[in-house]
Computed example of a mutant assay.
Amino acid sequence: MNTFTDAKSSQSIFTFFDFDSLIQPTKNQDTEIVKQLAFIPGIKDILMLRQVHALEHATVWVLSELNNTAQNSTDQLLGGLSTEQGFYLYGHINQATLHSAVKIALQRLIEGEWRLAIHPRCGTNISVGFLLAAGLTVGFHLLLPRGPIEQFFGLGLAATTAAYLAPDVGMLAQRYLTTAIPFNLAVENIKMTRDVWGQTAHFIAVRWIESSDNQTSKRQH
């Protein structure tokens, strides 16, 4: 998953849906899903990717908050790319600030700040926009007369409707399909590296932990 955002991204999109009223996952739900569906190849990797994606979004939100608190410039662009091993974060970021942001983001997600897992500039929204545009274009093409004027009108209507719906539908797609609360993630390390395209980035490596490991960790603390 890919995310590109600036710190001044508007949160007005959240006013369309009441995300707090949606059914939230239980702490053991994801672990149970993996156990029940273990026969499906890659099911654990898919779930881990969803959790990493959520942590990526939350880290970007927290970095924006920390930058505002420190009265630093918040106009810089941050880019993110999630994998099942962790996520890349692109941009000029202070290493100590990043360490703090990841820790805070993970804790706040686990404690119930579900909105941090959703971001209006996520690549999911772009993908949803393309799918909506394609679907609506085909639909209007079949429904409207074959005349060039009618077809051109249908194309414009499809594009306009898709642009209007994409942010809200994309948010729901993120909530239910491409992100999951990272109950089963622990941060291993954060380091500077290069991605597969040779770009310099911070890589936040994570590992999967079972619910029993979570309980043991809490007792030790």
Results as ranks from 00 to 15, higher is better:
143 L>V: 02
87 F>T: 04
128 V>D: 00
117 A>I: 04
93 I>G: 09
89 L>Q: 03
121 R>N: 14
169 V>C: 04
116 L>Y: 07
102 V>I: 05
191 K>E: 15
172 L>S: 12
118 I>T: 11
108 R>H: 13
172 L>K: 15
176 Y>R: 03
134 A>D: 14
125 N>I: 13
188 E>S: 13
179 T>I: 05
117 A>P: 09
126 I>W: 07
109 L>I: 07
124 T>D: 15
165 L>A: 02
170 G>Y: 05
149 I>W: 00
187 V>R: 02
169 V>P: 03
154 G>Q: 02
139 G>H: 08
103 K>A: 12
169 V>S: 00
147 G>N: 10
90 Y>T: 03
107 Q>E: 15
137 T>M: 06
121 R>Q: 14
178 T>N: 12
184 N>S: 14
113 E>S: 10
138 V>P: 00
178 T>K: 11
112 G>K: 02
138 V>L: 12
188 E>Q: 15
161 T>G: 10
188 E>H: 14
121 R>F: 06
96 A>S: 14
128 V>L: 01
151 Q>I: 01
100 S>M: 15
148 P>T: 01
187 V>N: 09
137 T>G: 13
113 E>P: 08
164 Y>L: 09
179 T>H: 09
120 P>L: 02
111 E>C: 11
122 C>T: 02
113 E>N: 13
123 G>F: 06
95 Q>W: 13
121 R>W: 09
189 N>W: 12
140 F>C: 04
119 H>V: 03
166 A>T: 03
112 G>F: 00
131 L>T: 09
185 L>R: 01
143 L>P: 06
87 F>V: 07
179 T>M: 05
115 R>S: 03
157 L>C: 03
151 Q>C: 01
138 V>H: 11
144 L>N: 01
133 A>V: 07
183 F>P: 08
190 I>S: 04
180 A>K: 12
110 I>R: 14
96 A>H: 12
162 A>Y: 04
131 L>D: 06
155 L>P: 09
157 L>H: 06
174 Q>R: 02
